[in-house]
C-alpha cells in the first residue's frame, strides 16, 4: 500500500516502518504492531530487510501470526529477502503503547493500561478507569480475560462491563 512499485534497492527503513504500521495486532485490530511498540528495529541493507520485534507475552499464541504478517508486509513492498528476529531485551512494557493508540483502545471499549512503574511483585492490582464514563469506581470481575494481555471489569458508575489492558 505504501509504495508497491519502489524498486527493492530503493526501499528505506521508513518505507518498512510505514508498511508495518498497517499490520494490525491479530487480537486487537484497532491498534497496529507498531502502535503497540512491538517492532523494535528495522534495518535495510542492499535490498535486504531485517526486522526485530519483541513479544508482548511470552506465551502469546499470536506470535506466529505476527511474524508471518511482518514478512508478508515487507514482501508486499517488493522485497523478497526478509528476516524477522525476536528479542526479549528490553522486555516489552505497556508504557510503549503510543498515546493515540491508547485513545483508540479506549474508544474500542478497552481501558488502556496504567503506567507500569517499577513495583513488579505486588498483590494489589493497579487502578483502572472505565473506558466509557471515566469513573474509577470499577470492580475487577476476572483477573484474566479473553487474551493474555487483558482482564475483565464492571463499572459501578455506569454499570457497563469492560475489558482492561493489564499494566505490564
Amino acid at each position: 500500500m505504501t509504495a508497491p512499485h519502489t524498486h527493492p534497492s530503493r526501499i528505506t527503513p521508513q518505507h518498512v516502518w510505514d508498511a508495518l504500521s498497517l499490520v494490525p495486532d491479530p487480537e486487537i485490530p484497532v491498534v497496529s504492531i507498531t502502535d503497540m511498540g512491538m517492532v523494535r528495529e528495522v534495518e535495510v541493507q542492499e535490498g535486504q530487510v531485517s526486522v526485530t520485534f519483541t513479544p508482548t507475552f511470552s506465551g502469546c499464541p499470536a506470535l506466529h501470526v505476527i511474524r508471518q504478517s511482518i514478512v508478508d508486509a515487507v514482501r508486499d513492498l517488493g522485497v523478497q529477502d526478509v528476516t524477522v528476529h525476536s528479542t526479549l531485551t528490553p522486555p516489552w512494557t505497556t508504557d510503549w503503547i503510543q498515546e493515540d493508540a491508547r485513545e483508540r483502545l479506549r474508544q474500542y471499549g478497552i481501558a488502556p493500561p496504567a503506567p507500569a512503574g517499577d513495583q513488579l511483585i505486588t498483590l494489589d492490582p493497579e487502578p483502572t478507569r472505565c473506558p466509557r464514563c471515566h469513573s474509577l469506581n470499577v470492580r475487577m470481575t476476572a483477573s484474566f480475560g479473553p487474551t493474555l494481555c487483558k482482564r475483565l471489569y464492571v463499572c459501578d458508575a455506569c454499570k457497563e462491563p469492560f475489558e482492561g489492558f493489564k499494566s505490564v
Partner: peptide
C-alpha cells in the same frame, strides 16, 4: 537475566490471582 525480566512481569498476575 533477560528471560527472568520478561517472565517476572507475567508472573505477578498469577500470584495476585491465586493469592486472592
Amino acid at each position: 537475566a533477560e528471560v527472568a525480566n520478561k517472565a517476572v512481569r507475567e508472573e505477578k498476575f498469577h500470584l495476585q490471582h491465586t493469592a486472592l
